[in-house]
Write a protein that binds this DNA or RNA. Sequence first.
DNA 1: GCCGTTTTCGGCCCGACTGTTTTCAGTCG
Length: 576
Amino acid sequence: MPVHNADIGSIFEEIADLLEIQGGNPFRIRAYRNAARTVGEYRRDLKTLIDQGGSLPKLPGVGADLGGKIREICANGTCELLERLHREMPAAITELLRIPGLGPKRVRLLHDALEVDTIEQLRRAVRSGAIRDVPGFGEKTESQITQALESRGSAERRMKLATAAQYAEALATYLGSVPGVAEVTVAGSFRRRRETVGDLDILVAAGVAGPVMERLRAYDEVKTVLASGETRASVVLRSGLQVDVRVVPQVSFGAALHYFTGSKSHNIAIRRLGQARGLKINEYGVFRRTVRVAGETEESVYAAVDLPWIPPELREDRGEIEAARRGELPELVTLADLKGDLHLHTRATDGHNTVREMALAAKAAGLAYVAVTDHSRRLRVAHGLDPRGVSKQIDEIDRVNSALSGITILKGIEVDILEDGSLDLPDSVLKRLDIVVGAVHSAFNLPRRRQTERILRAMDNPYFSLLAHPSGRLLGEREACDVDMLKIVRKARRNGCSLELNAQPDRLDLDDVHCRMARDEGVLVAVNSDAHGVDDFAHLQYGIGQARRGWLTGAEVLNTRNLPELRSLLAHPAKR
DNA sequence: GCCGTTTTCGGCCCGACTGTTTTCAGTCG
């Protein structure tokens, strides 16, 4: 049975949920949650390591006991503790924890008092009014649960970063105009540039909080006010996006910014460092006993625990604190580092603009070169090019190149990788191009081995330069293809190809974890817009955010190279 | 259940808001 690290993580999470409902030792529960996260995100497949007879790597928060459970789960797909908990508590009960307002204590009460173990039973208990008689449950709690049950399924989706940005920037500007407000920053996963955000955390520096709270409640996009205290409020916008606003004095802004940027596990790790130095770190500052020793800036918070400032994109407790301590934080790539864009479309297929218009827009966006990579013939819906169409476009690019200055247009193609791993155009066509971007646009559901082989075979074509949107996922719409990414990354290294980080807000593919895998394996990543129109070069900022989350430096991104260097890298010395 | 710049035992991140209480537990971030 295939057991992936994420499966082990889920089992540990489930154990933690069940132990919590049973009222278990909170620190034991935390240990399971920490391990769930560590294991779930670990980049090498633990079952494979074990099957190959290797010992488990030392993972933080995983000791002898949890290590044994990992082996047990890899062997059996489950572990004795989970089975025992399932005998004591119905498995479905952890679903109840997902209802806002219901935590472990109340779930336990419902189980004991009303034998409520499933969402459906909860629904019946609410309808019959039985829930009101449970001690600790009042009128408000009942209606909160009712609402949660009604809206279940309809909402609860994370919003794409680029979509959330529209709401975030408008609201931040609005709050910034309140008299007395010194500074407004959108913190949270938005600031960490996660591909999707669950809610917005907006931090406001102001002497007095009252007027800010008042203006927030009056914002015309606010649909409901979930909570509203003196310095903190939660509202839901009409878009469905939840927004948490916190007001702090300027002297606490850095500490609050650090606190509300997260991630939670990064913050916990930083606080522990503080604790070891006799410091208390909270959103108001860094304190030795009652004396504030830091907190006006984020830099001062990090300095208090002897660390340099850590970029928000890295704050996931994935080794950034250790790297910072050793002085080995990567110099992350920036938007300004990009010199070109290697994936875009024109009216010849499914783009909206001409070669000339796209080139001028790229120039205006500060780029020195672009590759025109229209679709190949197999992609009928996009009017993909056949060999004649490619020839025509090559002539057009020659004409535009000789007419324009300050921007160079490379000849390329986004060629379909067919189901058997061959490419959709003959080598005689591909050899005329500067760059060949290969992409999967069909048969997304092949089993892992076949899907992987398909891509590996495509990469063996001597003209293959770059694998576009390697996983094929569409955020919130289509899961990633089941592929062995490590094999693909290693093939890219052997063959001298690159992988794309497609910057379209609904792709952002490679994801952060695989970017880092490419980095670790020494494979260059190209951050491309996949622009279909002149405005789409704006996507690049989101691709850069993701690249930074993947620890990429400028040197590790293919299209930070100037044109001569790029040309020599595309020449594939490994293959020709 | 993990772990070590007070420690191999005794700690484990910290505070705001709400509801149901009548001084605080539960939930959330």
